[in-house]
Computed example of a mutant assay.
Amino acid sequence: MMKKITVVTGCFNEVENLEELFNRVAGAFETMPGYTFDMIVADNASTDGSRELLRRMAAKDSRVKVILNANNFGHIRSPYNALLQADGDAAIVMCSDLQEPPEMIPAMLREWEAGAKIVCCVKPESRENPLMFAVRRFYYWLLDKFSETPQLRNFTGFGLYDRRFLDALKLFHEPYPYFRGLVTEIGFKRVELPFVQDRRKHGRTKNNFFTLYDMAMTGFVNHTKLPLRLAVFAGFLLAFLSLLVAAGYLVYKLFYWDTFQLGLAPLVIGLFFFSAVQLIFIGIIGEYVGAIWTQVKNKPLVIEEEKINFDR
């Protein structure tokens, strides 16, 4: 019996990449007899013609399934919603910008057939901006170091996921999921496949400082309490140092009562320093409160405007 694999991707203004992505995915499966596939594309209200192209692709090939979102629900929620609707024996998650090569599919399938429930494609090398790659690697290291569960380094979510993992994923009611963290939290046997991430071939990246910061903080808030505990430790440490400085000034003043002048500079510097520390940790607490607020609101992942080829 042929096994079915569902390829899942999200897109926002990727009209130049979508056809090539599907053709390369289809080409990869042509080299692997014994498998059928379909591809779910979740569109986040694109404005560059991606929606019209997806409709044409779906009309031409029923293997193309399309979810047209009513609004742009972001690159975290939209692909996750599509993944929950994958009905294959396994699902492959990849980006639509062609930086994650579909030619990795045969290697993923071989590892899956060998017994791995999760095949994680990690990028020890990348052709992206060296500075950004270094920052990403540092973040992965930092999250892995302080997370309550071990995290995969240099892993973006690109990989293959068995049906048992997909069913387990549905038990987590996450309105704003950190998918990479869920992969390690859920468990199952997994293997890592290295690949070199390509440069974006067409279009421009949709990520900016704020989206990257949002994703980074989502990972920390969901998988470690370290920032909150740092606030407590820092409070005790600064209180202790303040007492030492106060004691030192007191002794110095007792010995040099007539000549010692405190001056305004230490007061001003100390005031700004402690104010900065307080603002930093208030912001950290705010991140955790914001995560709780998101959970309490329990909004749907996305609102779907239209679905194509899901009834076939």
Score class of each variant (00 low, 15 high):
Met2Gln: 04
Lys3Phe: 00
Thr6Glu: 03
Val7Lys: 02
Val7His: 02
Gly10His: 13
Asn13Cys: 10
Glu14Tyr: 06
Asn17Trp: 09
Asn17Glu: 09
Glu19Gln: 14
Glu19His: 04
Glu19Asn: 07
Glu20Asn: 10
Phe22Ser: 00
Phe22Met: 01
Asn23His: 08
Glu30Ile: 00
Met32Gly: 01
Met32Val: 01
Gly34Lys: 01
Thr36Arg: 11
Ile40Pro: 04
Val41Thr: 12
Asn44Ser: 15
Gly49Gln: 07
Gly49Lys: 08
Glu52Thr: 10
Lys60Pro: 02
Val66Ile: 04
Ile67Trp: 10
Ala70Leu: 10
Ala70Tyr: 01
Asn71Asp: 10
Gly74Arg: 03
His75Val: 10
Ile76Phe: 08
Pro79Val: 07
Leu83Tyr: 09
Ala90Trp: 04
Ala90Asp: 01
Met94Thr: 14
Cys95Trp: 15
Asp97Trp: 08
Leu98Ser: 12
Glu100Phe: 14
Glu100Thr: 14
Ala107Glu: 06
Cys121Ser: 04
Lys123Val: 05
Pro124His: 05
Glu125Ser: 08
Ser126Trp: 04
Leu131Lys: 09
Phe133Gly: 11
Phe133Leu: 11
Arg136Lys: 13
Arg136Gln: 14
Arg136Gly: 15
Leu142Cys: 15
Leu143Asp: 01
Leu143Cys: 03
Asp144Thr: 03
Asp144Lys: 05
Glu148Leu: 06
Glu148Ala: 11
Thr149Arg: 05
Gln151Asp: 08
Gln151Tyr: 15
Leu152Met: 07
Leu152Trp: 02
Thr156Phe: 08
Gly159Gln: 01
Gly159Asn: 01
Leu160Met: 07
Arg163Lys: 12
Phe165Cys: 10
Asp167Phe: 08
Glu174Ser: 15
Tyr176Trp: 12
Leu182Phe: 15
Val183Gly: 02
Thr184Lys: 12
Thr184Asp: 08
Val191Arg: 07
Val191Phe: 11
Val191His: 06
Glu192Asp: 09
Pro194Thr: 06
Gln197Leu: 13
Gln197Lys: 12
Thr205Ser: 14
Thr205Phe: 03
Phe209Leu: 06
Phe210Gly: 05
Thr211Ile: 06
Tyr213Gln: 15
Asp214Thr: 14
Met217Val: 06
Thr224Ile: 07
Lys225Tyr: 12
Pro227Cys: 07
Val232Lys: 14
Phe236Ile: 08
Leu237His: 09
Leu237Lys: 07
Leu238Asp: 14
Phe240Arg: 05
Phe240Tyr: 09
Leu243Asp: 03
Val245Gln: 12
Ala247Gln: 07
Gly248Asn: 02
Val251Phe: 01
Lys253Asn: 06
Leu254Glu: 08
Phe255Tyr: 11
Trp257Gln: 10
Leu262Arg: 05
Leu267Val: 13
Ser275Thr: 13
Ser275Gly: 10
Val277Phe: 13
Val277Gln: 13
Val277Ile: 14
Gly283Arg: 09
Gly283Leu: 05
Gly286Ala: 08
Tyr288Thr: 11
Ala291Ser: 13
Ile292Val: 12
Asn298Val: 01
Val302Pro: 02
Ile303Arg: 15
Glu305Ile: 12
Asn309Leu: 11
Arg312Val: 15
